[in-house]
Simulated assay, not measured.
Amino acid sequence: MVNALSWAMTAVVLAVVVGAVLVPRVAGAAPYTVLTGSMTPTYPPGSLVVVRPSDDITVGDAVTYQLESGEPTVVTHRVVGISYDGEGQRSYTLQGDANEEPDAEPVRPEQVRGEVWYSLPWVGRLGVLFTPGQHQLLVYAAAGGFFAYAAALLWQARRDRRREKAHPAVRPAVEEESRA
């Protein structure tokens, strides 16, 4: 029972680490934490949204965008309209799922960080608790812990094989019964 619980917890932690850290880095995506309730119930506060660049943003897509171009503050809202000015420049009208009105300012394509690819509820809450340096330390510690656990399992299996070779179990009665 304890062994099964250990494996289940390990699988859950591994899945969270893979979904929150590894997949975004490999896929060129970026994780962001939802801090407000403007996208409730789709992305409640504390959700981690993983955003990847997209050139094919349509009405209905949830996107993460910079409030001001070049600034680090971002918001995740849904596209409710796409318009073009007289020069053919595209802009998006965005609105939070829980908001009654669209955002006041249209968003230019260069402000858009990407389209929401997937989300992990509650995982973003962990991200808010730690600084970026602490995040990196936790990732290294988790990876080190998994490697240490795997090394311990391999060492134990090797030790058990050596014991079996050094002290083979003698079962002559079983052998005689199987010959009869």
Rank of each mutant, 00 (worst) to 15 (best):
G145K: 08
Q156T: 03
Q89I: 02
I57L: 15
A30G: 02
V2Y: 13
E176F: 03
Y92Q: 13
S47E: 07
G114S: 14
Y32Q: 12
G124M: 03
W155T: 04
L126W: 15
A11Y: 06
G70L: 05
P102S: 08
E175Y: 05
T36M: 07
G127I: 07
E115H: 07
A148S: 08
S6M: 11
P45F: 03
E110S: 10
S47Q: 05
Q89N: 14
Y32F: 14
D61R: 09
A4I: 11
V79D: 11
V174T: 10
N3R: 14
A148N: 05
A143M: 09
A166S: 12
L35A: 14
G96W: 01
E87Y: 08
F130Q: 04
A142E: 03
T40I: 01
T42Q: 12
M1I: 04
V17A: 14
G37F: 00
G60F: 11
R171I: 04
A169F: 05
H167S: 10
E177R: 12
A157F: 03
P31C: 09
R113E: 14
P53E: 15
Y149Q: 07
Q136N: 04
R125G: 12
A152I: 00
V174Q: 09
L94W: 12
P102A: 14
K165I: 02
V49L: 06
A151Q: 01
D103T: 03
R179P: 00
N3I: 10
R162K: 14
Y65A: 13
F146Q: 02
Q156V: 03
Q136Y: 00
K165S: 12
T36L: 07
D97F: 00
V112E: 11
A169Y: 06
M1L: 06
A104S: 15
A143Q: 02
G127R: 02
V50W: 00
R162S: 13
R90I: 09
R162V: 13
A11D: 07
E71H: 12
P53G: 15
L94N: 08
V74P: 09
